[in-house]
Design a protein around this nucleic acid. Structure first.
Lengths: 205, 205
DNA sequence: GTCTATATCTCGATAGAC
DNA sequence: GTCTATCGAGATATAGAC
């Protein structure tokens, strides 16, 4: 009933160190522009300008535009993953799931540009450029679900499908909530309710 | 407990007539290429070539590339909508919903390139180019859901959110099933089970 | 590492004959 | 309506000084 600490560690290492401030500027600029104008609609020159660096400098850090796009996806994906890796010892499965789901949703709402980027990327042909292990669902998350199915707390179904359905719900809810401007209270309420919906769907009751 | 016949009629009119064979060729070619190489990755010249027409001819039918992209989305969206508009008289709400959900899912599996295109488009900045009424959920569908909520057969929640969640589930399931190669029997089984999941989520029980 | 300048290329869109 | 030919803009990526 836990998240793998090793994963947390690795994620932190990969996503945070070895990235210079300048790289961070580039990624931030690219993110904003890609989401607003699309991969096509944002020339590398615009990214460089927005990041406050020269055109050629960008290609010092990323050999090609495609490499930048993929790197940006991995960077953001790891941020989200890390945020879902919060451990909640000893609680029930439902509570652990609620914690993970809620963390991810709040992250999505607080980082809605990044959240939209993930979806834009996942539904584009760039997905094919990802290394295989980046296409898979989070490992700790999958173990939790498998375990829940084995213990018959979750409905008997393919863990992969279960994970897919949960993520779909998460992204759909995030998109909906981002579009509606909610008060803090309304937001909190909706987060809670949306988890109950999902739980009704996947739990064996 | 029904789909609006007027909508069905309108959809048929808009989506099928007034489109010449040549336009159909263009749309088919564009669809395949956009999904495989992205909006950026497919030049209009490639579309023309794949459609078996000259470069300039394409611009006779669509003034700009963007216009073609939006037209393609509307065309496909209407096909899917029409397929969901099958009427099922006198059945229970659950049965009507099952019918609609199932029709849409089967359409998505049988037209997986079109299905992926819808998602690619919806998660891209091109969405902003859509006329407002094209961004909304299907009207008959919304009425059905509102009615279900009013009758307390569905949980008390925003009909808009309910529709969003249903669509997310549909697309997620479609994507998952397209990736897994299933036998005809397994496919039928999974379609049925996936609807039961959704129903557990939205019904008030 | 960072910049400027630019090579090289490709694309969207148009013009105009048929 | 359909074609060929092409313009002009703007893209990625590189070269080379600092």
């Amino acid at each position: 009933m836990a998240a793998c600490n090793f994963c947390v560690y690795i994620c932190r290492v990969i996503s945070q160190s070895n990235i210079t401030d300048k790289q961070q500027d580039i990624l931030n600029a690219a993110l904003r522009l890609f989401v607003n104008y699309g991969f096509h609609g944002t020339p590398t020159s615009a990214i460089a300008k927005e990041a406050g660096i020269a055109n050629g400098t960008l290609f010092h850090y990323y050999k090609t535009k495609d490499e930048l796009i993929v790197a940006l996806y991995i960077h953001i994906k790891l941020q989200m993953t890390e945020c879902m890796q919060q451990e909640e010892q000893g609680a029930t499965l439902k509570e652990v799931c609620r914690k993970i789901y809620t963390s991810a949703l709040i992250w999505g709402l607080d980082n809605d540009t990044a959240f939209r980027f993930l979806q834009q990327f996942m539904n584009s042909p760039y997905v094919a450029m990802l290394p295989d292990d980046m296409k898979k669902h989070n490992l700790a998350w999958m173990e939790l679900l498998k375990d829940g199915i084995k213990r018959k707390e979750l409905k008997p179904m393919e863990p992969e499908y279960l994970a897919t359905v949960l993520m779909s719900h998460l992204f759909g809810t995030g998109q909906y909530m981002s579009a509606s401007k909610l008060s803090v209270a309304a937001r909190r309420k909706m987060i809670a309710e949306s988890f109950e919906l999902v739980w009704d769907m996947v739990s064996s009751k």
